[in-house]
């Protein structure tokens, strides 16, 4: 048997999501084909997805070989660690201040910490830093203002590129250039509605 590991995993993923969907859909009235309730279409969609997922999974056992990239022990460890730490930080975040108990700031902090934790594993580093950079943007934007948020985003995203770590001046130049550009485009020209400097509102 030549196993197509990617297809098997894809099939499993489709099946998993479909199963979750079907379970959540139990809340919704099904109705009948003639008079469909809100749950009818989801039911159809998830069953079809389940079937297709199963088909992809089964065919995946024969259509290979197409192995997955090898995961090291540390990749697993840090994936779990990041989820655990991230969730924990999210849950205790209201203790850090009122800011984190409003809207999505608490879960945002959890995501940021989680993505930074996962960067300890080399295999996750690129994805981790890029996602963390976006999270810090969302966290800082409303209270810290656009300038601070953009600067922090550039700083964290730059860590994904080894060349930047040895030459921090390039990052600084890029930061100044992008800050000026963002100010010119988004504030001066488009006038989008955000705070520009810290504590503006």
């Amino acid at each position: 048997m030549k196993i197509n590991a990617k297809d098997v995993a894809s099939g499993a993923f489709l099946i998993l999501l479909a199963a979750i969907g079907l379970w959540l859909n139990m809340d919704h009235t099904l109705g009948t084909a003639r008079r469909m309730g809100p749950g009818y279409m989801p039911m159809l969609v998830f069953w079809v997805q389940l079937g297709l997922g199963a088909l992809v999974l089964v065919l995946g056992f024969f259509s290979g070989p197409d192995p997955m990239e090898r995961w090291k022990g540390i990749d697993w460890t840090m994936l779990i660690a990041s989820i655990v730490v991230g969730t924990l930080v999210w849950q205790i975040s209201p203790m850090f201040g009122e800011f984190f108990s409003s809207t999505y700031n608490g879960i945002g902090l959890g995501m940021l910490v989680g993505f930074l934790v996962i960067c300890y594993a080399v295999g996750w580093r690129l994805l981790g830093f890029i996602c963390a950079a976006m999270c810090i943007f969302a966290l800082l934007l409303e209270k810290g203002g656009l300038m601070l948020a953009v600067a922090a985003t550039i700083l964290i995203s730059a860590m994904a590129e080894p060349e930047h770590r040895s030459r921090p001046l390039g990052v600084l130049g890029l930061m100044i250039f992008l800050l000026a550009m963002c100010w010119w485009i988004f504030i001066k020209q488009l006038d989008i509605r955000v705070a520009v400097w810290p504590m503006q509102y």
Binding site: M111, A138, M181, V194
Partner: peptide
Amino acid sequence: KFLYPAILVFCCIGSYSVNNNVFDVY
């Protein structure tokens, strides 16, 4: 290495400005 932080910043601002909501960034 200079292009990607710029793309990232523009994506962040862009996704925020659709609804003026950080939820979209997350």
